[in-house]
Design a protein around this nucleic acid. Sequence first.
DNA 1: AATGAATGAGTCTTCATTCAT
DNA 2: TATGAATGAAGACTCATTCAT
Lengths: 223, 223, 223, 223
Amino acid sequence: MSSVEIALGANPEASRQRRKQARPAELTAAALALFVEKGFAATRLDDIAALAGVSKGTLYLYFDSKVALFKAVVLEGIVPVLDAADSMIDHFDGSSAELMRQLVSTWWRLIGNTSLGGLPKLVISEARNFPEVAAFYQNAVIARARNLLKRVLQRGIAAGEFRSMPVDMVADVLFAPILMLAIRRHSVDMCGATTIDAETYLQTHFELTLHGLVSSNNSRLAQ
Amino acid sequence: MSSVEIALGANPEASRQRRKQARPAELTAAALALFVEKGFAATRLDDIAALAGVSKGTLYLYFDSKVALFKAVVLEGIVPVLDAADSMIDHFDGSSAELMRQLVSTWWRLIGNTSLGGLPKLVISEARNFPEVAAFYQNAVIARARNLLKRVLQRGIAAGEFRSMPVDMVADVLFAPILMLAIRRHSVDMCGATTIDAETYLQTHFELTLHGLVSSNNSRLAQ
Amino acid sequence: MSSVEIALGANPEASRQRRKQARPAELTAAALALFVEKGFAATRLDDIAALAGVSKGTLYLYFDSKVALFKAVVLEGIVPVLDAADSMIDHFDGSSAELMRQLVSTWWRLIGNTSLGGLPKLVISEARNFPEVAAFYQNAVIARARNLLKRVLQRGIAAGEFRSMPVDMVADVLFAPILMLAIRRHSVDMCGATTIDAETYLQTHFELTLHGLVSSNNSRLAQ
Amino acid sequence: MSSVEIALGANPEASRQRRKQARPAELTAAALALFVEKGFAATRLDDIAALAGVSKGTLYLYFDSKVALFKAVVLEGIVPVLDAADSMIDHFDGSSAELMRQLVSTWWRLIGNTSLGGLPKLVISEARNFPEVAAFYQNAVIARARNLLKRVLQRGIAAGEFRSMPVDMVADVLFAPILMLAIRRHSVDMCGATTIDAETYLQTHFELTLHGLVSSNNSRLAQ
DNA sequence: AATGAATGAGTCTTCATTCAT
DNA sequence: TATGAATGAAGACTCATTCAT
C-alpha cells in the first residue's frame, strides 16, 4: 500500500521482506499515538491493531505483552537526533545564544512537533506504574537533552558570554518550558480552543532566558 | 445538618452527621492520592475505598460513578487553590520582584507541595479522556494562576522595574517551570533516586527569570 | 395523613395503633404493585419502601427478607371474596347460566379489575423460582376459583340446563380466558395501544361458552 | 462464508465457519431455556454460557449485552412460528371445524409443545420491562396466530357452518385457553404434581368451542 | 418503631492473552 | 506469518441486608 511497496512491485519477495521489517515500527507508531491519546490503561490492543491495520493476534507475534509494547514504544523514542545535536555543539562557530536558539528550534522541528513529542506526557502519566521505564526514559532522553543545554551553558560561561551559574539546575529550569510545550500539545491544548503558538512561545522563552525580566538600567534594584 | 445542630453536642445524631458531612472529602482525598499515583483507569475503586477506610459500596452513596468521583476530585481541588490565590493580596508595598517571589513561594507551600500538587499531572494525563474536566481545570485554575503572574508583570512594567514585554506569553513561560516541578514530584521524581530540591529549583527559576543568562546584567546566580 | 387518621385525631394513640396495624398491608400493597410491574428480581426494596412512604429499614421490621415479603404478597391475595361466592352458589335461585354470568362479573369487579388481578401474572412469572408459593397460590386461589365454576357446571348439569361433561377439564378451559384477561391487563396490554375491552371480552366468552360456534340448525355437522 | 465455501469439504476454515454460524442459535437456545425458567433478571449470563458450553466472554462476541441477547431470543423465536403459520395452508377442503382442529393441533405440535412454547410466558413476564419487545411479539406472533383463527371463523360463517359473530373478539377468547396451556406448561404446572394433559385439554376446548355448554345443542362432550 | 448509612456478595461487562486454523 | 474466535480474570456497579442511632 505504501509508495515504498509499490516502487518495489517488481520484486514481491523484497517487498514482503521490507514490509516484515517495517511491521514493528508500524505497530509501535500506532501504539504511541493511542497511548499518548488515551493513556496506557485506557488503550485497547484492538484499537492499536486496527490503527496499524493488522489483527489483534499479530501484535503478539512481535511483542510479548501490552507492557512489552509500551516499553518498546518508549525505547523507540530514543532517537539518534541527539547524537547529531551533540556533534553540532562541538563544531558550532557562532555565539552560545545562537547555538541555543538553533538547538531548541531543531528539537521542536524534529521531535517536539512530531508524534515523538507525545512521549513526555506518556512517560509522566505512567511513571508510577512503570518506574523502570520512566527511569530509563528519564536517563536516556530527558537527561541527555538537558545535558545538551548544560554543555551550551558551560560553553557560554567559558566564553564569558553567560554569567557563572549552577549549570545543572539552570538547565533543568530552562528545559521545563520546552517540555511543557510538548506536554500541553498532547493534553490540555486539545481541550480548550486556544492552542498555544509554539514559535512565539519558544521565542519568548529564548529571549527571556537570555535577558531576564529586569530592565537593563535597573538590573540591580531587585533582591 | 445545620451548624446549630452540630454545635449541640447533646444531639445524638451529631456524630453521625459530622461523619456524613466529612465523608465526601475523605473519599476525594483518597481518590486524589490514587488517581495521581496510578492514573484514572488503573485506579481501582476498591483501593480508593480501602484507603478511605470504607467499603466499595459506600463510594456510591456519595458519587454516582467512577467518572463522577474523578470530576469531584478535580472540582474539589480547585476551591483551595482559588482560596489561596485570593489570599495573595494585591496590596503589596515592596518591589514586584519580591511580590513574585512571595507568590511563587506561597503557591509552593500551599499547593504545589501538598497533595493538590498532583492535580496538574492528573489533569494532563486524563485530559484527552475527560476534555471538559481538563478545560474546566485549565480555565478555573491554571489560567487564573497565570493571571496572577501576569498582573505582577504588569505592575513591574508600570513601575519601570521590568522591561516592556508581551505579558501573556511571558506568564505562560514563567509558569512552566513551576508546573513542571509539581508534575515531576508526582511522576518521574518518584522513579529515579534524584528527587529535585524544590527550594533551590524555584530560587534558580526566580533569579534566572529576573536577570537572564547574559552576563552583561552582571548579577551572580547562587551556586 | 389518611382520612382515617384525621378522623381519629382526637385520640392520637388510637391513630398510631391504627397506623401500625395498617402498615403491613400498606407495604404489601406497594410490593404487589411493583412486583407485578417489574417482576420479583427487578423490583428493588428501595422502590417498594419509597412507594409505601417508609424507609428501607422499616420493611425489615415487618418482613424478614425480600422473599418473605413476596410470599406475604401472595398470601394476602387470598381474599374472602371466594367465601362469599361459595355461599352465593348455594343460595342462588336463577338459571345456572345466569349464576355463571354473575360470578364472572363479580370476580372481574372485585378481583380481576383490582390490583389483585396482577397476582396471576406475578405467580406465573415467578413460579419456577418459588415453586412452593406458586403451588400454594394455585391450590388456595386458582383451584378454588375453578372449583366455583365446577360447582356451577354440576348445578347446571343436574338441572338438565347443561350437557353432561367432564367438569374438571371444562372448568379449566373456561377459566383460561378469564385468567388471560387479568394477565394481559398487567403485561402486554400495557405495551400496545390496544387495551382490550374487558366487558365485551367477558360477554363474548360467556355467550360463546353457552352456545358454541356451531349454528344451531347445523349442530351435528361438525366432527 | 459463502455456501460454496462451506460446500468445499477440503476448506480448512469450513468447520470453524460452520461453528461460528451455528453459535448464535446455540446461545439463544440456551438463553431461551433459562429465561423461560428463571425470568430475565434472575438468569445469570454465566449459566447461559455454561448451558451453551462456552465461556461467558463468548456471549459478548455475538450479543452486545444481556438485553440484546433477550431481544434476539424473542426475535429468533418468531421466525419458526411464522414458518409454521405459513405451512398451515388456507387451501383446505374439509369443514371449518376440522380445519380449526388441525390448526390447533399443528400449533401445539410445532410450537406449544416445544421450547418455543415458553416464549409467551417470557414475554408476558417481561412485558413491562421490555415494552417494545412485547409489542413486537404481540404484533408479529400473537396477532398473526389469532388472525389465522379469525380467518377460519370467517370461512365457517361464510359457509353457514358457524353462527354469525364478532370474529375478532371471538378469536381472542378462543386463543386464550391455548396460550394458557403453553404458559402453564412453563410455570405453575412445574410446581404442583398435576401437569395437565394437553391432548385432553385441547380436545375439550375444541369440543366446547364448537357446541357450547347448553344442552339444547344436544351433543356430548367426551368423558 | 423508624431511620438511613454502611456493607459486601453477586453480576454484568471488558479486554489482554491464547491457540487452532 | 497471520487471523480472529475463545477464554477467564478483573473491575465497575447494584442492591438485599444489617445496625448504630
